[in-house]
Amino acid sequence: MDVAGDKGGLSTTEQATLDRLWSVTQGGDHYDILGVSESAERTDIQQAYYTLSRQWHPDRFFRVDLGEQGERLEAVFIAITEAYRTLSNESARRAYDVQRESKHGRRRRSKRPKTSSQPMSEALQAAVEADAERAPRRSTLREGRAAGRRRRGKTTPGQRASSRTVSGTRRNPGMSKAMADMRKKLRANLRRARNLFEEAEQHMEAGAVMKAASAYTMAATFDPKNTVYQEAAESAQRAARKIQAKNFVQLAESAESFANLREALANYQKAVEYEVEEPRPYYRLGVLLRRIEEDHRAALEHFRTAVKMAPNNLEFRLALGELYADLGLKVNAQGQFKRVLSIDKSNAKAKAALKAL
């Protein structure tokens, strides 16, 4: 059975696991650090992070004499946190994957599976086992401390703070160098983030919104705590989505002009996915869904959206009323046709539709 190290230090299993995690962090790959695959879902990433951080958070060992392992523990926890912050943010993860592919020549899987269950990595399994092993010892320590407090009477926070001592341990030169290298890497990332942000600003001034959005996102990835970079990236991404939505609308309208209705349908759907701000694409998508796919429920949703965005558009309301009538919702249909007549009293289509009901 594994036993704790001197002065209540790490057990043999914990030392071996920490050494293994340390060697993994030297590679700097976020997926390897968390022990998840490239196709891992966000829930799997969260589970891996919570398991590892619960096991290796430095606060768990504030009473333990870790010796030279203290700096290694700190470096491992920093790497775990950095990996989680990047992979749990969708835009930051995409940017990281692009950077990772260009650096290592690795390919991400084109499509992530919808199932969220992933096998637990060796590092995670070892962390769980080590945590379970340490639990009885923690319980014994807690009971001992509780008994001591009962004998002494209630202690004040100041007394508890004064009773804590930090053991003087010699720093390992190799570990100090590793921490210095990590800080150097962090400073380099911050410089890279500033350069990318300035590059993005230049792209934005030149009207190259797509390039600006990419550069802003990369800047936020290299400096994830910088709220200015994060806000700029989100704003640029919204602007880029608007441009992409308009491009899809133009493609759809062009396809319709050549009677390529299925191609038009696909492009209208993409425009709606990018939250196009004009009402007509929603209306045209509803028309094509009803005509080609006979998907009345989806068509109804898009007609409603078009009417909500342009409440006085008679064409949109007539289409919505006709669909209500076809679905047997006569009261709803009457409401739409009457609204058309309240805007245009001489509208022949609305009068005929009401008479037919």
Rank of each mutant, 00 (worst) to 15 (best):
residue 163 S to K: 02
residue 44 D to W: 05
residue 303 F to G: 04
residue 227 T to F: 11
residue 213 A to C: 13
residue 110 S to I: 14
residue 90 E to Y: 10
residue 63 R to M: 13
residue 24 V to T: 00
residue 177 K to D: 14
residue 118 Q to D: 04
residue 141 L to W: 07
residue 148 G to I: 02
residue 66 L to S: 05
residue 8 G to I: 07
residue 329 L to I: 04
residue 345 K to E: 06
residue 299 A to I: 03
residue 121 S to K: 07
residue 277 E to S: 04
residue 102 S to D: 15
residue 272 V to D: 06
residue 43 T to S: 15
residue 244 Q to F: 05
residue 194 R to H: 13
residue 87 L to E: 14
residue 42 R to Q: 11
residue 60 R to D: 06
residue 115 T to Q: 15
residue 5 G to Q: 00
residue 212 A to K: 02
residue 279 P to E: 01
residue 80 I to S: 06
residue 322 E to H: 11
residue 347 N to K: 11
residue 31 Y to W: 07
residue 215 A to P: 08
residue 96 Y to I: 11
residue 345 K to W: 08
residue 248 F to Y: 11
residue 313 N to F: 07
residue 266 A to T: 04
residue 120 M to C: 08
residue 21 L to S: 04
residue 44 D to I: 04
residue 354 L to P: 01
residue 58 P to S: 13
residue 174 G to Q: 11
residue 246 K to L: 14
residue 37 S to L: 09
residue 82 E to A: 03
residue 83 A to C: 07
residue 289 L to R: 07
residue 334 Q to S: 13
residue 260 N to A: 11
residue 261 L to M: 14
residue 164 R to N: 09
residue 269 Q to D: 05
residue 261 L to Q: 12
residue 338 K to A: 01
residue 217 T to Y: 02
residue 334 Q to Y: 03
residue 225 K to E: 15
residue 249 V to A: 07
residue 147 A to F: 01
residue 103 K to R: 14
residue 80 I to V: 09
residue 244 Q to V: 06
residue 324 Y to S: 02
residue 97 D to V: 12
residue 201 E to C: 13
residue 38 E to F: 07
residue 100 R to C: 07
residue 241 R to P: 08
residue 239 A to T: 09
residue 64 V to Y: 10
residue 326 D to H: 12
residue 55 Q to D: 12
residue 338 K to H: 14
residue 58 P to I: 15
residue 348 A to K: 07
residue 261 L to G: 08
residue 124 L to I: 15
residue 51 T to D: 05
residue 301 E to R: 09
residue 84 Y to A: 06
residue 162 S to Y: 06
residue 80 I to Y: 01
residue 106 R to T: 13
residue 217 T to Q: 00
residue 216 Y to L: 03
residue 18 L to Q: 01
residue 238 R to T: 14
residue 3 V to W: 09
residue 64 V to S: 14
residue 300 L to V: 06
residue 6 D to A: 06
residue 132 A to G: 10
residue 332 N to F: 01
residue 166 V to F: 14
residue 165 T to Q: 05
residue 89 N to G: 11
residue 173 P to A: 08
residue 155 T to A: 15
residue 181 D to G: 07
residue 89 N to T: 12
residue 260 N to M: 05
residue 170 R to I: 14
residue 10 L to W: 00
residue 180 A to Q: 15
residue 340 V to G: 01
residue 180 A to I: 13
residue 60 R to I: 10
residue 340 V to E: 02
residue 232 A to P: 03
residue 76 V to M: 13
residue 14 E to C: 02
residue 10 L to R: 00
residue 220 A to L: 06
residue 160 R to Y: 11
residue 89 N to L: 09
residue 101 E to V: 12
residue 252 A to M: 05
residue 268 Y to F: 12
residue 325 A to K: 14
residue 146 A to V: 10
residue 15 Q to D: 12
residue 267 N to R: 06
residue 256 E to D: 10
residue 95 A to F: 02
residue 19 D to R: 04
residue 198 E to T: 15
residue 262 R to G: 05
residue 229 Y to F: 14
residue 114 K to P: 08
residue 226 N to Q: 15
residue 17 T to M: 01
residue 322 E to Y: 10
residue 307 V to I: 12
residue 297 R to S: 15
residue 323 L to S: 02
residue 275 E to G: 04
